[in-house]
Design a protein around this nucleic acid. Structure first.
Length: 576
DNA sequence: AAAAAAC
């Protein structure tokens, strides 16, 4: 009982603080001053109560059902029903499922659902970690010195799970502190840097974190350095340069944590320049991306190389489609699944709009008009390809837009690093980019995102606009759509609805495009790509690459099928 | 459904 009171007090304090400092609109809405006990958030005006989606099912639904903001009532109800269904599914309790009901107040505040056996209770503050798990004081002081005062939902729930050495699938919205949620327990569990160990040292790297882009790996490494400050931790951002340094076994065995993109790691393993047999913590950040067909075999190779019997594995993302979740669950052992908020859904803090621009030629004038009015720099502009990123940046510069920058993976490492640095220093006002920046990147200042080209999936949309609205701040996201984007418009419109933004009625009335039509659209687009490729004389190269990729994908699919039939685990397969 | 990303 005492513990429970402590938890609810801590939770209440956290929420009050967080909302007061970060969400201006909270003050305007005059929150209840008395935050003692339960239900601060249940008293929020419905448009602010974005935790409601993940609350344990209760009789309180009705009051929350009334949302004023949406034009199409019928659609709204449908979405609501879907929402409720998802909740019921995730809250499906079995005997092992510890007290969602008993812990309801805390759970509600953190809007979290947990599934799995013997789920550890969440922490109320980082200080709890000292008593409960003997987390080193140095680590705790590093947290508070970097202004991490109160755990977010994913941190409160995820850190204890990882500290109890359980496998974890964690789904938490963009900008809610996932990186810290896995770095803190890893550094705590490692105890002491290898270099300072007398007996146990020299057996090789003990933790590996995989991320889909270099930029993200870099950012994770920076966070890691903050937490590692004051002790002789060796944390390595894996790259060509560091890989060659680590080809010396004596150097390599003194490394504590490696942060890397998958292929880089695979290459080193294959060259015999790296062993992962002492890895006890493996994290896949942006897990659904990492389990995409193009990354999957690489990731599986890394997983297979981690042969330590006691390895703990965790996957983190804001989005985890069913297919990816299955793959993830195949990699994890007796995992706990934590969902904060609703998966595949942006934060309602981000005000989203869809803007019709007729055709591609109308996009540039629209953007120029947008930029001629006051906006909050830095602005992030997403396009669909590298060439389009470059040419749009050039157009903007020619039109006199100041401080335009661009970043895509076709640029050199130095160019990429410089662009990120300019962004971090606040020197870029308009950053034009590709999917490379869509996931994980945390630029605190970004208030506005523009999808210049329509995103190619719901996941892409959620992650792109998730570059704003971070750590409780408000954000704004504008998405251009043309006639060609028609077939995919409705899916995105539903995402807007689910996260509390309004959508013009006519969009919701769009018929669901038939499979035939979608296939046709796909063909048209593919033909365009081929034509474009022919123009720049790379047709053959692209064809060849696509053929290779295609056959690889098919092969992987076949393997998946046969494995399923033979009951072979994920790890076994890639070893073949 | 498709481009970009990983070296």
């Amino acid at each position: 009982m005492e513990a429970f009171q402590l938890l609810s007090r801590g939770g209440a304090r956290f929420n009050k603080q967080r909302f007061k400092s970060d969400v201006q609109i909270f003050n305007k809405a005059a929150p209840p001053k008395d935050v003692k006990g339960k239900g601060v958030l249940t008293q929020l005006p419905p448009e602010l109560d974005f935790f409601k989606y993940a609350k344990a099912p209760s009789g309180k639904r009705k009051a929350e059902d009334k949302e004023s903001d949406v034009h199409a009532e019928g659609k709204q109800e449908k979405v609501e029903r879907k929402r409720r269904k998802i909740e019921e599914e995730s809250a499906d309790s079995d005997d092992n499922h510890i007290g969602i009901e008993e812990e309801a107040p805390t759970m509600q505040k953190h809007r979290v659902t947990a599934k799995g056996s013997d789920v550890p209770k969440p922490i109320a503050s980082f200080e709890d970690l000292r008593e409960r798990y003997n987390v080193p004081p140095r680590l705790l002081s590093n947290l508070s010195e970097n202004s991490y005062k109160h755990p977010t939902g994913i941190q409160a729930h995820g850190i204890p799970i990882l500290l109890e050495h359980r496998d974890l699938a964690a789904i938490s919205p963009t900008g809610t502190g996932k990186t810290l949620a896995y770095l803190t327990p890893i550094i705590s569990a490692l105890g002491s840097p290898i270099s300072s160990m007398k007996n146990d040292g020299g057996r090789g790297v003990r933790a590996v974190i995989l991320a889909p882009t270099r930029e993200l790996a870099h950012q994770i490494h920076n966070e890691c350095l903050k937490l590692a400050a004051g002790r002789k931790w060796r944390t390595v951002l894996f790259s060509k340069a560091t890989a060659s340094t680590l080809s010396d076994k004596n150097v390599r065995d003194k490394v504590d944590i490696i942060i890397s993109t998958p292929l880089r790691l695979v290459v080193s393993i294959q060259e015999g320049n790296l062993e992962l047999n002492n890895v006890q913590h493996l994290v896949l950040d942006e897990a659904d991306r990492m389990l995409d067909p193009e990354f999957l075999s690489q990731v599986q190779e890394v997983v297979a190389a981690c042969t330590h019997p006691n390895i703990q594995k965790a996957v983190f993302s804001a989005t985890l489609p069913a297919g990816s979740e299955k793959l993830a669950m195949g990699i994890l052992r007796n995992p706990i699944r934590i969902i904060v908020g609703l998966k595949d859904t942006p934060l309602p803090l981000i005000a989203q709009t869809l803007t019709y621009v007729a055709d591609d030629a109308s996009k540039l004038p629209s953007l120029l008009t947008y930029l001629s009015q006051p906006y909050n720099p830095p602005l992030l502009v997403f396009t669909s390809t590298q060439p389009r990123t470059t040419s749009l940046a050039e157009e903007l510069i020619m039109n006199g837009i100041p401080n335009v920058d661009c970043l895509h993976a076709g640029m050199t490492k130095k160019q990429r690093d410089d662009a990120v640095s300019r962004m971090r220093r606040g020197e870029s006002w308009v950053m034009v980019t590709t999917e490379v920046m869509a996931r994980g990147m945390d630029f605190k200042g970004i208030r506005e995102v523009i999808n210049y080209d329509f995103p190619t999936s719901v996941q892409s949309y959620v992650h792109r606009i998730g570059r704003t609205g971070r750590a409780g701040r408000e954000g704004k996201a504008v998405t251009y759509f043309t006639d060609e984007d028609g077939p995919f418009l409705k899916a995105i419109a539903n995402v807007l609805l689910q996260s509390g933004s309004s959508v013009p009625e006519w969009i919701l009335k769009l018929p669901k495009p038939s499979k035939m039509k979608r296939r046709q659209m796909g063909k048209v687009k593919r033909a365009n790509t081929v034509n474009a490729a022919r123009k720049i004389g790379r047709n053959d190269a692209i064809k060849k690459r696509d053929m290779i990729a295609g056959s690889k994908r098919r092969k992987e699919k076949e393997l998946r099928e046969t494995d399923k039939n033979n009951g072979v685990g994920e790890g076994d397969r890639s070893a073949k």
